Simulated scan of single mutants.
Amino acid sequence: MARAASLRIVGGVWRGRALVAPDGQTTRPTAERVRQALFDMLAHAPWSPGIEGRIVLDAFAGSGALALEALSRGAAHATLFDTDRAAQAAIRANIAGLPGAAARATWLAADATRPPRSAFACDLVFLDPPYAAGLIDPALAALSAAGWLAPGALIVAETGREAPAPAGALLAERTHGAARLWVWRYEEVLS
């Protein structure tokens, strides 16, 4: 079952709307201040195409806060993956609680390291796996093989503060408390 949390959408049409977080300790929702900093960067950085009209994949969705924040700020569609039952309940509740979200969001009980085949490629991808689990590289390889990643997609990964940099030329890296955000383009992951 999902629990109410002091988790809110921080910008866009659903700004201030409350979200629920999954029960238990397996999910660590991205803090509001970290999401605000991330989305400010995605909206204003010279290397970013912005959020409006993006096709989003939130591959370790948890509460779905990253994907729903993107939809609130104008993304066209978001797909959310999670295998945890409590996370799936939170995602369903959060989509149902936001007007119009159900028409623009799809959630799947899917593992990002063994995803289903995609009918379309995403151009903004969030990877926020459990810290220190080593899942970013395997997830990227699997998502690429299954057709989820568009050429030139922006990849945004959240790791623990001490994690090494992902492969590829970084566009941005920011540390916020215990979290570190990394942003790079998909082609550069392959080089």
Rank of each mutant, 00 (worst) to 15 (best):
E187F: 10
P130V: 01
D137V: 13
F126R: 08
T175A: 15
T27F: 01
E158N: 03
T113K: 08
L181D: 05
T175V: 15
W148H: 10
A179Y: 05
I9E: 04
W14P: 09
R161H: 12
D123H: 05
P22V: 12
N94W: 09
R85W: 00
R92G: 07
R3M: 07
G177A: 12
R180I: 08
A141F: 00
A78D: 01
E69L: 07
T79W: 15
P22G: 11
R54E: 04
L149W: 04
A146Y: 09
G16S: 12
A153R: 06
R35W: 02
D40S: 14
A142R: 11
A31N: 01
A132K: 12
A101S: 12
F60Y: 14
I95C: 08
A45W: 09
P22W: 14
Y131I: 12
G168F: 09
D40V: 11
I9R: 07
S118H: 10
L190V: 03
L7R: 11
S48R: 11
A101M: 05
F60G: 03
A43R: 12
R174F: 05
A59L: 07
H77E: 15
V125M: 08
V125S: 03
D82K: 11
A121W: 03
V34K: 06
A96K: 12
R28G: 04
E32N: 15
A179Q: 10
L140E: 05
I51Y: 02
R117T: 10
Y186P: 00
L127E: 10
A163P: 05
A76F: 08
L135N: 07
A70G: 00
I9K: 05
G147K: 01
C122A: 15
L66D: 07
A146V: 11
P29C: 12
R3L: 13
P164H: 09
R180Q: 14
G11H: 02
V13L: 13
T27C: 06
A112L: 05
A86N: 14
P99W: 02
S144M: 02
R17F: 08
V10W: 10
R15L: 09
Q88A: 04
G62Q: 06
N94L: 09
A59Y: 10
A145Q: 14
L154P: 01
I91C: 06
A90T: 03
A141H: 12
L19R: 01
S6A: 13
R3I: 14
G168E: 04
L42T: 04
L171P: 04
F39L: 04
A178M: 01
I91M: 12
D82R: 13
T27E: 02
A165F: 00
Y131V: 13
A112G: 06
